[in-house]
């Protein structure tokens, strides 16, 4: 079936994926100082990876419409910094506390790229709508 608004499903999949990424980044930032999770370990930073997804065969020239989806959300296994803070409840015998491996600068960069991609995809929707409106006005 031909879409009234061209490529809207491709763009929709991208908006969803970028939103998942924003969710995960905000989770990382929220837990930047969480020293004890459900497993008793400091919080491990989550990483989102995207993969292309063939939405449907069709279009004018054959298989097109490669949307995007969240491939997997993995944990960054690297160890966070050790901070000397003997009064902390999670401090070990030597008074050292293992902090989460969240780097705020990196999270902010991820946040910016995700929000810029989100904006870019929104402008695709805007343009697509204008094109559809133009097409609907043919002959009038």
């Amino acid at each position: 079936m031909m879409n009234l608004i061209p490529a809207i499903d491709v763009t929709a999949s991208a908006l969803t994926a970028e939103k998942v990424k924003l969710d995960v980044v905000s989770q990382n930032i929220a837990n930047a100082h969480t020293t004890r999770g459900p497993d008793g370990m400091p919080y491990a930073r989550k990483i989102v990876s995207f993969e292309a997804e063939l939405n449907r065969a069709g279009g004018l020239g054959g298989a097109t419409g490669q949307g995007v989806r969240v491939g997997q959300i993995t944990e960054d296994k690297s160890l966070g910094p050790l901070v000397y803070n003997p009064s902390h409840p999670d401090a070990d015998a030597g008074g050292m506390v293992r902090m989460p491996n969240v780097n705020l600068a990196m999270e902010m960069v991820d946040l910016m790229t995700a929000s810029r991609s989100y904006e870019a995809n929104l402008s695709v929707v805007r343009t697509a709508r204008q094109m559809a409106q133009k097409a609907l006005r043919i002959g009038s």
Partner: peptide, 23 residues
């Protein structure tokens, strides 16, 4: 017009996959 509509789909695909590794 057909070609332009199709090209729009392709550009939308590119922008959707701006962060997909290997795309």
């Amino acid at each position: 017009l057909d070609a332009a509509a199709f090209r729009h789909e392709l550009i939308a695909t590119n922008l959707a996959n701006v962060e997909t590794p290997g795309f």
